[in-house]
Nucleic acid binder design. Structure first.
Lengths: 320, 320
DNA sequence: ATGGCGTATTTGTCCAGGACAAAATGGAGA
DNA sequence: TCTCCATTTTGTCCTGGACAAATACGCCAT
């Protein structure tokens, strides 16, 4: 396996792979006749363990080079003790995942949506479930393909629930909302849960999907005459990048378009012209507030700017 | 904009950006105080044009360094003259896209599915539409965000059609099908259209989504006891990589699991243990053939291997 | 003990410029 | 017109050095 394949499969950049080898002596790939690195399968597997540990907060210098069994022992400890209520809710999902029961998983997720209602599912149950699955993965209790499989089923269930709720209710023309993520952000579930929350308020949202270049997001916002630009940030986005990207975006879209940012990214801070919604449940009230502002200013061009800080709730429940 | 951002936004690897600069004198980025490249926005825009031209078959040595207006002139010529029937079908969709009409686009796509029926849509109309949109993009007639937007709407419509058809019809337990793409392949539409074709035959398919590492695909196939592993390849996958990946995968899954590969990738060739389906419409007959083989061998462990070449149709209509 | 702050270490990303194989091109001969 | 071989083009990989941002550590004051 060459260095480009390892980069794709493990998510570790080429430069990082080379510098780990230089500094820590691991990985220790073979070389082909042109002196290019050839990574054996077992080292690639170890690199995947290492990536999980690094994401979980371990420092490369402390863990790179350790034998596999020690790495696995460390992995079991990440994330602290099991969160009881979450564990209970997620337990059955994990069991279905481990049993590879596609039909059962789909039915179970559908039942969860029906029981909780779409609003509670998208703002509370769903995020909690996604977090639990991510935690299980980082502990090594799930294979990558099981996480892919979960994502796919979750997407299907939530998407059809959104579609179903779109026709009903009280559809309103405004605010017009555009959804998207930055190019660094491949995580689609947080975005979709946000979309659900907006849909429940009668907004007909339009999604660009994940990983759209910032100038393109801005161009789309202008083209759609969006009232609100909703961006989702998972924990993997470095705080500085999120901040810089939001500033760039703020400069590219008209002042009448509000920017709402949410997600588990720790570096998300409210700034002039950028609202931060710490949890998905606050989307509903925020839309109501927007509409109140809109009618106040005659509703033709959206609300006037200002009153930013009412969005900066202190709660920090949500995750991507 | 630093080199990593440009890599993400333009899809050109860092090494390529540096070597173009060295060889052709373009791009010609500024430098910050640590002597690192800073790309101005206009050069990034030109790089996007260049990427389109290179994908369309132009050689970097001939086009890198040319002024923007010449590049745009070249872009208008790529893809040959308009394909008349396709152009007619896609015209309204393009108009809706250019008008940023979310509701209209959704309704139009839904109407297309209803008019053609899911089978014809997923195997003929849909691929043709996707190809026309891709062509329009490579000619510069569409912004990136418009293509994202189209993908999102297309996904939503097709996904709900698949869901709706899943309950009805004559669900059969076999064959069990697993869908996925290689890590290099981010294109989800081809995969989903294939999923639709399988679903119409009563298969309850399970999707891993895009970009799953090959060992993980194999692990999932074993875990789900898949009868068929369906892989989608778009034109961006180099022939050699597709071939090598399929060989690797073939060695990792049991002989009772068939591998079916399809898509616009030119390098896709049938080989021992790997079936190539050149067009989506051939999926239906192929499943019937599988079932005939399955009952022949008592249907408990799937059909015996062999009779590979019946799948290697000569037609080449499909695209990813 | 606890919290704030300045210094030291760690870590990821970038650079230059060379090398080479795979792919594409072009020309010669059948 | 087609096939085959030499030549050019092109992308990706290499080494080893550099540096800033992030993180940990030691110190002092409360």
């Amino acid at each position: 396996m060459n260095i480009a394949s390892v980069e794709r499969d493990c998510g570790l950049p080429k430069d990082t792979l080379r510098v780990w080898e230089r500094r820590y002596g691991f990985p220790n790939p073979l070389r082909d006749k042109q002196d290019e690195r050839l990574y054996p399968a077992d080292q690639v597997a170890t690199l995947r363990l290492l990536r999980r540990l690094v994401i979980a907060g371990h420092r490369p210098g402390k863990v790179v080079g350790l034998p596999d069994d020690q790495l696995k022992k460390l992995l079991e400890k990440v994330g602290g003790p099991d969160d009881q209520p979450t564990a209970h809710e997620a337990k059955q999902v994990l069991e279905l995942l481990r049993a590879h029961d596609a039909v059962g998983l789909r039915n179970h997720l559908n039942a969860m949506v029906l029981r909780a209602g779409l609003g509670a599912f998208a703002s509370v149950t769903g995020p909690r479930l996604v977090e639990a699955i991510g935690l299980a993965w980082s502990r090594g209790g799930l294979e990558i393909h099981q996480e892919h499989f979960f994502t796919e089923q979750f997407t299907t269930v939530l998407r059809s629930a959104i579609n179903a709720s779109q026709g009903s209710g009280f559809p309103r023309a405004r605010p017009r909302v555009l959804f998207g993520t930055f190019p660094q952000e491949p995580h689609a579930l947080g975005l979709m849960m946000a979309e659900a929350m907006f849909t429940l308020q009668g907004c007909l949202g339009v999604s660009l999907g994940v990983q759209t270049p910032i100038p393109e997001i801005a161009a789309a916002a202008r083209a759609h005459k969006a009232d609100i630009l909703a961006l989702s940030f998972s924990a993997i986005i470095p705080a500085a990048q999120a901040s810089a990207g939001l500033a760039e975006l703020r400069g590219l879209v008209p002042g009448t378009t509000e920017i709402w940012a949410g997600g588990a990214c720790s570096g998300l801070r409210p700034k002039p012209g950028v609202h931060v919604l710490r949890e998905l449940a606050s989307i509903g009230p925020a839309i109501e507030a927007w509409r109140a502002r809109a009618t106040l200013t005659d509703g033709s061009d959206g609300p006037s700017p200002g009153k930013t800080d009412q969005f900066a709730s202190t709660n920090q429940g949500e995750q991507s």
